[in-house]
Design a protein around this nucleic acid. Sequence first.
DNA 1: GGATACGATGGGAGCGCTCCCACCGTGATG
DNA 2: CATCACGGTGGGAGCGCTCCCATCGTATCC
Lengths: 351, 351
Amino acid sequence: MAERQPYGRGGRRPTLEQVAARAGVGRGTVSRVINGSPRVSERTRAAVQAAVAELGYVPNTAARALAADRTDAIALVVPEPERRFFAEPYFSDIVHGVGLVLAETEVQLLLTFAGGDRERRRLGQYLGAQRVDGVLLVSVHADDPLPDLVDQLGVPAVISGRRSEDEALSSVDSDNFGGGRVAVEHLLQRGRSTIAMITGPLDVYGARRRHDGCRAALAAAGHRVDPELVEQGDFTEEGGRRAMAALLARRPDLDAVFAGSDVMAAGARLVLREAGRRIPEDVALVGYDDSVIARHMEPALTSVRQPIVEMGREMTRLLLDEIAKRPEDRSAPGRRSQLVLPTELVVRDSS
Amino acid sequence: MAERQPYGRGGRRPTLEQVAARAGVGRGTVSRVINGSPRVSERTRAAVQAAVAELGYVPNTAARALAADRTDAIALVVPEPERRFFAEPYFSDIVHGVGLVLAETEVQLLLTFAGGDRERRRLGQYLGAQRVDGVLLVSVHADDPLPDLVDQLGVPAVISGRRSEDEALSSVDSDNFGGGRVAVEHLLQRGRSTIAMITGPLDVYGARRRHDGCRAALAAAGHRVDPELVEQGDFTEEGGRRAMAALLARRPDLDAVFAGSDVMAAGARLVLREAGRRIPEDVALVGYDDSVIARHMEPALTSVRQPIVEMGREMTRLLLDEIAKRPEDRSAPGRRSQLVLPTELVVRDSS
DNA sequence: GGATACGATGGGAGCGCTCCCACCGTGATG
DNA sequence: CATCACGGTGGGAGCGCTCCCATCGTATCC
């Protein structure tokens, strides 16, 4: 193999045409080899590959994108400021899952933050500019117009979680209903009978489903669902404290609490401790998310785990499938895939 | 303004040509307006802008990249697996700093992980494919061939930290020498006289500079630099423990320790405590990085802070400058910018 | 041996843009 | 009144690739 050119200082890179000349074939043939078309003889293929290696040829992405109308790149759009993105292990796991699928392809992942208003507006431009073949949307709020914008632009997209019962976009969610149910079933099995619930904001779809699953488990066990034992939080630690205080005031006899997130469980724990309740002896506590704090809490928190890495994988698979279809074959709105992955209870010391 | 087309279902987006037709001008004129050229009359500019708005025109990136040979995108290349990237606040701050500068431009940031070997190899292809105008390299190891590969490809690049005294690439580093010096000066001011040092691996440039600064401070104060008081660690907690144990065995009379990283300081702290030494009463402890653990340590750790956000900003500025030059004007190897930002001592309870 | 089929190949057209040169008209200048 | 300068404009050429159609050769069949 000949020495490869250092292209530095503005030297131009070899083109298809030059590879073709070197290999003594036509442009079309080289293109076929590069793209792995089967309609090339073994001899020719070898000659072309040799020429590619000698010249250190790499296809120009821009030219390919322009001619073929595809970029071989997808974007992960994070509608949050960078800080939050890095702070939450959720994103890390999603990216990891995405990466696992993309590693087997030639598709590149672009991370895009759209935290601020300005960046938000620019995103439309960005997608309109056909920089990417598709979009992965994570951490989308119920009232976020972004998904609909993306959909209207005709850009294939998959959303993590869903915004409501009838999500218009393709989505991958975890089984929030099952998660809530299994948490409460676990508490019942532990012999608890007066089970309180700190929910997330009930206009958030996932939070409502956790709540529904919880009620379902109680009903299935023949328990009455007592409104006095339900208090709404806001996914913050402070919200968890407030909710716990209210529950304790109304029902000092409660012997278990299911919180819709680990962070709220952490808040609840503080209030319980201040009230002199031992965990789990007096009150069993179960959280949701299986986050880092669950493991580090004292006592370690029983929590419901979502398969986040797996969600990242499935989102990516779904998106690549959608992209692979020709535009006219793409699923019509309303007939998109809605995937729901199972959750799992991780039992620790708090229950 | 007319209703904007929803392009969905494979509908094509408007082109420059169509905007030109709509505005009753030529292609060139529209291009000039889009790119903010001053050589357009106010009348014409307004007409074109109206047409752009009516059609919802967005320039096609691929076509622009092909014609102009620039992508308006830069890549942040992280030669680490995703996990580490998210785990370390360092990266979060860098990305934040980069984002601050890019927010004022039309340049897009792409995050690229090159942790695995496979991804590593693909990166060359990626850069060769002219997907980006330049590259930001962070967390590069001394023996990493990546920077030279990038340089050889003629892709403008800026590296965070430097690999050695004579870094070939443009770089932005923090003042490790000054950081080491100020840490030790602080200990001397506190009246400590027997100051031990746990260094990072001395083949890592930054670690060596911290060590050098430390020695310089000692020498300036008229202290002899006692080899018995220097022990090399490896930036891990375990390494910090081992080093501390060795130092304590050799010199039980030491009254201060400067560790080359917070994590090593954390390891040292455990050993000191096991040996019954109180911090800071018996032994003062200073770390490096001002990481989260510094604040959360018991007692809170005095540490040297690097201006990481600022480093991200400066790296980006440097890179954009380099990109703005025509290729033939770009700095020759050896005459690249080497920027060093000041470090700062954050005094807490451990000293 | 000629018609047929099909795999392999070459290269024209065109993707949407920027660059640049030619050209137009106007007002200043000799 | 001819000449020049210059701001403003139109549009050809070309970026490097993919797509596709025409073409060529060879194996296959009657």
